[in-house]
């Protein structure tokens, strides 16, 4: 147990280290140097050590990397070259919107995908299975920007049942507390807080369906395949022979064993969700980190590009680390090793 935790801890630190090396290299590749990396350095270290004679010293790459790390741990990601605001604080205004959308999309994918996968596995090669498998293939092959447009076309423009863009109706004024619109509306002391919550809910449905489609297809497929192999295991057959009810056998014995590989798959969806949020947010005008990054790319706002990739990748690495720990806790083979 201790061994595997420390191994995961080292893996996490190593990934983070490679990430900082990468972003540091990236910062040096940018057509415009990131001001925050060098400005302070020149002021403090160079001035102090070498007086005013700049030409004497090539800025040492190793030293500037150390300085870069120091800046990161101070939470200094520089200043947006377009808006002049701190990149670090911008990230925390935009990221909760992405997180909220991703969580709702992931819940949609899990709560639909797992039962569908189980259904398909139980009726292997029958029509239920075949229709589930072909829909997952369709979902998997759907370019999500096109899928988003089709859904908007159908639900918003033809049926008019769903809003086209943004997180909440413009008539509501909700002050951010957690950054999650669904939570903030409920926390708000405005008289219309409940209507605002409904409006927020109404706005998140379509984007989260779009964002959740690929994870849904992947989760369904992997639930199906792991359930099929588990349902053929001796321990499932012997559980049936012991007279346990089919419900217990399926939802307790089989699902508990499928949970571990499933958790790995769900962990991999973090990347898929972030990738998808880039597209989904730009189509639904969702003010999240994906849209923030894309706009920075369009405007060539390099401090924001640098900060966004660093923060988003750190988030992904961190979630993978937490999931690994969770797996260690849940897997009896790892947990009780003596």
């Amino acid at each position: 147990m201790f061994y595997s935790i420390s191994k995961q801890g080292i893996n996490f630190l190593a990934s983070f280290f490679v990430l900082t090396l990468f972003t540091f290299a990236l910062a040096n590749f940018f057509p415009e140097k990131l001001a925050f990396l060098y400005a302070n350095q020149i002021d403090q270290s160079l001035m102090a050590n070498h007086g005013t004679n700049y030409d004497l010293v090539e800025p040492n790459l190793f030293n500037s990397y150390l300085f870069y790390l120091q800046q990161l741990f101070d939470g200094n990601l520089g200043i947006s070259s377009v808006r002049g605001t701190s990149v670090f604080s911008e990230f925390f205004t935009y990221f909760p919107a992405t997180l909220e959308l991703s969580i709702v999309a992931l819940l949609f994918a899990i709560f639909l995908g797992v039962p569908l996968g189980i259904l398909a596995a139980r009726h292997k090669n029958q029509w239920q299975d075949k229709s589930v498998v072909s829909s997952t293939l369709i979902g998997y092959s759907m370019p999500i920007f096109w899928w988003a447009m089709l859904l908007v076309l159908f639900f918003s423009l033809w049926l008019g049942v769903s809003p086209v863009a943004s997180r909440i109706g413009f008539e509501y004024d909700i002050s951010p507390v957690t950054g999650f619109m669904l939570v903030d509306t409920l926390l708000s002391d405005q008289p219309y807080s409940l209507e605002a919550f409904k409006s927020a809910l109404h706005h998140i449905v379509l984007p989260s369906v779009v964002l959740g489609t690929v994870p849904l297809a992947i989760i369904t497929r992997s639930t199906r395949s792991s359930m099929i192999s588990i349902l053929n295991e001796d321990y499932i057959i012997s559980a049936k022979a012991r007279g346990l009810s089919p419900v217990t056998v399926l939802w307790k014995h089989a699902l508990r064993n499928a949970a571990l590989p499933l958790l790995t798959i769900i962990g991999l969806q973090v990347s898929t969700l972030i990738t998808g949020s880039l597209i989904t947010e730009s189509i639904f005008a969702w003010p999240g980190a994906g849209k923030w990054l894309l706009e920075a790319v369009y405007r060539r706002d390099f401090p924001v590009i640098h900060g966004a990739i660093l923060a988003i990748a750190s988030f992904v690495i961190l979630t993978h680390f937490i999931l690994d720990l969770l797996m260690t806790y849940l897997d009896p083979k790892l947990r009780r090793k003596k």
């Binding site: 990934s15 990430l19 990236l26 973090v270 990347s271 898929t272 972030i274 990738t275 880039l278 597209i279 990054l293 894309l294 790319v297 590009i305 990739i309 988003i312 990748a313 992904v316 690495i317 993978h320």
Partner: peptide, 11 residues
Amino acid sequence: LAIPSLILAVV
């Protein structure tokens, strides 16, 4: 692999 593919490509 840890960096979401599209984000990496975009950057």
